[in-house]
Simulated scan of single mutants.
Amino acid sequence: MPATTKAIIFDLGSVLIDWNPHHLYRKIFDDEQEMIDFLANIATMDWNEEQDMGRSLNEGTEILVKQHPTHEANIRAYYTRWEEMLGGAIEGTVEIFKQLKASGKYKIYALSNWSEETLGIAQRHYDFLNWFDGLVISGLEKTRKPFPDFYQILLNRYELQPGDVLFIDDNYRNIVAAVKLGIPSIHFVGADKLEAELKMRGVL
């Protein structure tokens, strides 16, 4: 790892936190394929990202109910039962976070697409969200990954240059966007591979 590296930036969902709508909707749907179709075609990730970017949960819900009234109950469950989408911490990554924090070598930040309205729920569940030196959350900033301005908010706020940081995210789209900005990045596919990559880079 270059000596100029000052900070590690973590995504939250699917990197440190096992957030997955399947955890909830497997309780609602008896048929797996029906659940998959609902999440692929109705309560989609694109729709959810509008709430992540600052649209209220209520507004997002009402828009979707109007579009798909026969699915109203299942749509309303998305946010009224959102807490049931939390499957726990991804312990291997949390352990890596602990090691990085304990080393004292780096500032550690979160850069996450996350609704302002559900952030507090996550903070009650996961103590490690209090370990960060700063959190940049899309719902608060009204922009999100992979838009360049969202990455730039973090860099500007903490007086960092793109080459000063190492960014970790499970969504390859977001990695591509970061690399275009000159931000060294790791595509997260599991804690073991992350640990190996960090060791190879001399971080751990």
Rank of each mutant, 00 (worst) to 15 (best):
K142M: 08
F167D: 03
D149C: 02
Y109P: 01
S115F: 01
I153T: 14
R157Q: 13
A110K: 12
E159W: 03
A196E: 14
L166D: 07
Y158H: 12
K101H: 09
V165G: 01
I183K: 02
A102N: 13
R144A: 10
V136I: 13
I108G: 13
S103D: 08
D149N: 10
S115T: 11
G104D: 07
L111V: 05
A122R: 13
V179M: 03
V189W: 07
A178R: 02
K101C: 03
D192N: 12
G190R: 03
V179H: 07
Y106K: 11
F188A: 02
G163R: 13
K101S: 11
Y158M: 01
A191V: 09
F147T: 10
F128M: 08
F188M: 04
E197I: 02
A178Y: 00
Q123M: 12
E195L: 13
L166S: 09
F188H: 12
N171T: 07
G190Q: 11
A177P: 03
G182E: 06
I186P: 05
F132N: 06
L100C: 07
E117M: 07
F132H: 12
L135D: 05
A102L: 04
Q99D: 12
I108A: 05
R144Q: 01
S185Q: 08
F147R: 15
G134D: 04
R144Y: 02
L140P: 00
F188Y: 14
L100R: 01
S115D: 09
I186R: 09
R124V: 01
D164Y: 06
D192M: 00
K107E: 12
E195G: 10
I153F: 08
L194E: 05
I153M: 11
T143A: 02
G139R: 10
H187R: 04
D169V: 02
S103R: 10
K105I: 00
Q161V: 02
A196F: 01
L155Q: 06
F188Q: 06
D149G: 03
L140Y: 15
V189A: 02
Y158W: 12
K105D: 08
G182T: 08
L155Y: 06
T118R: 15
A178Q: 03
K107T: 01
K193H: 12
I108K: 11
E195R: 15
V179F: 00
